[in-house]
């Protein structure tokens, strides 16, 4: 780890002003930043500790949703009674990720801003456009089993590793941010970006902007939802493919569907066209398969990850079936039914 100056932020304004310097990094739980600093992937000259800022509440909104402070730990969020009752999809997705210890440290804001687990990004002995822009992407022709099948570019095929964010995408959350030039709201779908020709940029946050909260709209799809995560071991492993599915149904027909995937793209992959295809259709394997095919219409495999396309197709159909039946995937009993 390189040397750095430590600053304990006393106010949001102070933190945002400090964070505008590109050599400065915000730290919250530290579970991703310190990991990367120990590998010299991140080498900030100053680290700003925001953990004393008052961003730790989960509060009701006037619209009837919930506003989650950026410093709410992942575990507190997952086990919050209001979240469990009204947004069980979010609770489930969080509990599918990391470990109890990590979830105790990890914050809501940090989870959004966590970086890819691409092996080359982590290995400073190799080139990587995300770590060192312009050096190339060895994953395209290298070890790419865990990499993306949707929305890739020739410059980067990395995935966003979060589970929580897949649920937040499906739930159409809003991210509240504050920066040196004031506050603004970002729709969840616009928060993370695709790699294009600038894979070093993960999100649409501007310099100095800090996530202050994530807001959930009133509709939580509590009756019909699931988070189905497929991975190399049953716990404490990142997703190869994950699916957040949520439905509103009437008389065996889908009224509204939400569908987002993890482990397949540079951002949580929500497809509103595939969702729209389900509206008005019977909640049947046939409609689910058609939506899956549509979502994966542009999927492109690389040497080691082409299996993800069929895996995703089947996971979508299974997840929509679980959601429709009101039998969400258990994150304890890992059998997939």
């Amino acid at each position: 780890m390189n040397n750095f100056e430590y600053l304990r932020a006393e106010s949001l304004g102070q933190a945002a002003a400090a964070a505008a310097d590109p050599a400065t990094k915000i730290i919250a739980g530290g579970t991703n930043l310190l990991d990367l600093m120990k590998y010299n992937v991140e080498r900030p000259s100053r680290v700003v500790d925001i953990t004393r800022l008052p961003l730790k509440d989960i509060a009701e909104t006037e619209a009837g949703g919930l506003r989650i402070g950026a410093l709410v730990p992942n575990s507190d969020l997952a086990y919050d009674e209001r979240i469990k009752a009204r947004y069980p999809l979010l609770s489930s997705a969080i509990l599918a990720g990391a470990s109890p210890q990590l979830r105790n440290s990890a914050s809501t804001g940090g989870n959004l801003l966590q970086r890819t687990r691409c092996y080359y990004f982590y290995d400073t002995a190799t080139p990587c456009n995300k770590r060192e822009p312009g050096t190339g992407c060895p994953a395209v022709h290298g070890q790419n089993r865990i990499h993306a099948i949707l929305g890739t570019s020739q410059h980067c095929i990395a995935t966003h590793p979060s589970d929580m964010c897949v649920a937040l995408a499906a739930l159409a959350a809003t991210v509240h941010v504050t920066g040196p030039n004031g506050s603004r709201d970002i729709a969840f779908g616009d928060f993370h970006r695709l790699p294009g020709d600038a894979p070093e940029i993960d999100t649409t946050l501007r310099p100095g902007e800090i996530v202050t909260a994530v807001e959930l709209p009133p509709e939580g799809f509590a009756a019909n939802h699931t988070y189905l995560k497929l991975r190399d071991r049953l716990s404490y492993a990142f997703a190869l493919v994950s699916v957040a599915a949520a439905l509103r149904q009437e008389g065996g027909r889908v009224v509204e569907a939400r569908l987002a995937l993890g482990g397949v793209a540079h951002k949580p992959w929500r497809d509103e066209a595939a969702e729209a295809m389900l509206a008005g259709k019977p909640a049947s394997p046939e409609s689910f398969a058609a939506a899956a095919d549509h979502l994966l219409r542009d999927a492109k495999g690389h040497e080691h990850n082409a299996f993800k396309i069929e895996l995703a197709r089947r996971a979508i159909v299974r997840a929509l079936g679980q959601a429709a039946a009101g039998t969400p995937q258990s994150q304890t009993d890992k059998r997939i039914r």
């Binding site: 579970t31 310190l34 500790d49 440290s105």
Partner: peptide
């Protein structure tokens, strides 16, 4: 490296002491 901080279990390898 698991320890309890204020009663909660965490990985002490990913905690800056000064925080």
């Amino acid at each position: 490296c698991t320890v309890l901080i204020d009663g909660r279990r965490v990985n002490s390898c990913l905690v800056l002491a000064v925080m």
